[in-house]
Computed example of a mutant assay.
Amino acid sequence: MTTNRKNQSILLAGASGVLGRHIAHALTEAGHKVTGLGRSRDNGIRADLMDREALLRAVDGHHFDTVIHAATALRKPPMRDRDMDATDALRNRGTAHLVEAAHATGARRFVAESMVFGYGYGYHGDRPLTEDDPFGPLGRTPPLERHIAGMRTKERLTFESEALEGIALRFGLFYGPGGTDALLPLLRRRQLPLPRDRDRVLPWVELTDAARAVAAAVERGRPGQAYNIADLTPLGFRAHIEDVAGTFGLPKPMTVPLWLMRPMSYAHTVMASRLRVSCAKAERELGWTPRHPSSGEGLAAMRRSGR
């Protein structure tokens, strides 16, 4: 197990985002000093990852021990493939620019947010995928190849940058405080249709659990390694959303045949996928296990806390 020192100075790209806010809290609780990087006024360093020159000017004169890439261009759940365009670009050019900025600040470690969909969208059967399974296979359609290429490139840049200890965390689908909230108005108005098919399951991870994994990777992650981060209970998209509705006392969502959701191309692809992952490596090397072993338990905790 690799142990990095405590009390690090950390630059967190995406600190004002939903996941970023949880990461900042987890790192601060662990004794690290966090500086946010992003376009909003809430960040200690204001810059756009897509603007290389402005980013390098913004970090000039600063020193950080670790840089974390948790930036996203998503402001709401993506429904169509084109909704992922800005995030795909951020995974490609934005990551390259942030790696360059990490070098400029003298950082030693670079931790990147990745996703389990980098194993490929679609049907993966019942065997949990491990980090030894192929990551970044060719997408079966041009839009899916754009999405997977972004994840493939982001990890390649993370691992292949000289003088940086690159670590990637392959997260399941996020839910929890700040994330699930966006679904509640849609459910209240019954504007979130769900597929009738219950045969497909996906990995999920509660946002505070995901943030704890980032803190663990900062301190104990092994350079050049990827880690799957998900809870212990894969669950279909329909089952998860029905749990959300039940937990918060909202109307049961309407269901439609999966084929009817094809106009929502990205959502259709996600809901049609079947994917399980093993997180044994994260438990073994990072000492990380989810506090919420299922999304049902995580949602109940969210309701109790009033968040």
Rank of each mutant, 00 (worst) to 15 (best):
T2Q: 06
T3R: 12
N4D: 02
N4Q: 05
R5T: 09
G14C: 02
G17R: 02
V18P: 00
V18F: 00
V18D: 11
L19Q: 07
G20F: 06
H22K: 12
H22M: 04
I23E: 09
H25W: 05
A26H: 07
G31M: 12
H32Y: 08
H32V: 11
H32S: 08
V34L: 06
V34Q: 09
V34C: 10
G36P: 03
L37C: 02
G38F: 01
S40R: 09
S40A: 01
G44Y: 01
R46G: 00
D51L: 06
D51G: 04
E53G: 07
E53F: 03
A54C: 04
L55R: 04
R57S: 13
R57V: 07
A58R: 03
V59Q: 05
H62R: 14
T66R: 04
T66I: 07
T66Y: 03
H69V: 05
H69L: 12
A70V: 02
L74H: 03
R75W: 05
K76W: 00
P77W: 02
M79D: 02
M79H: 00
R80M: 03
D81C: 01
R82N: 01
A86L: 06
D88S: 01
A89Q: 08
L90S: 11
R93D: 09
G94P: 01
T95R: 08
A96K: 08
E100W: 02
E100S: 13
E100K: 08
H103E: 03
G106Y: 02
E113R: 08
M115T: 12
V116N: 15
Y119M: 07
G120W: 11
G122L: 11
G125I: 15
T130I: 08
D133K: 06
F135P: 10
F135N: 07
G139C: 08
T141K: 06
P143V: 12
R146T: 06
G150P: 08
G150E: 09
R152P: 09
T153W: 10
L164G: 04
F171L: 15
L173G: 07
F174H: 07
G176W: 10
P177F: 01
P177T: 11
D181T: 12
A182Q: 12
L183K: 07
L183N: 05
P185C: 06
R188L: 10
R188E: 14
R189I: 11
R190W: 11
Q191Y: 05
P193F: 13
P195N: 10
R196I: 01
D199M: 04
V201P: 04
P203E: 13
E206S: 10
D209Y: 14
A211H: 06
A215E: 13
V218S: 05
R220N: 15
P223K: 03
Q225P: 00
L232E: 15
T233N: 14
L235C: 13
G236S: 11
F237C: 07
F237R: 09
R238F: 05
A239W: 06
I241G: 04
E242L: 07
D243T: 14
D243I: 06
A245L: 12
G246Y: 05
F248Q: 12
G249V: 13
L250I: 15
L260M: 15
P263C: 06
M264L: 15
Y266V: 02
Y266P: 01
T269G: 01
T269D: 12
M271Y: 13
S273N: 11
S278Y: 03
C279M: 14
L286V: 14
G287Q: 13
W288D: 11
T289V: 15
S295I: 05
S295N: 13
G298Q: 09
L299H: 03
R303L: 13
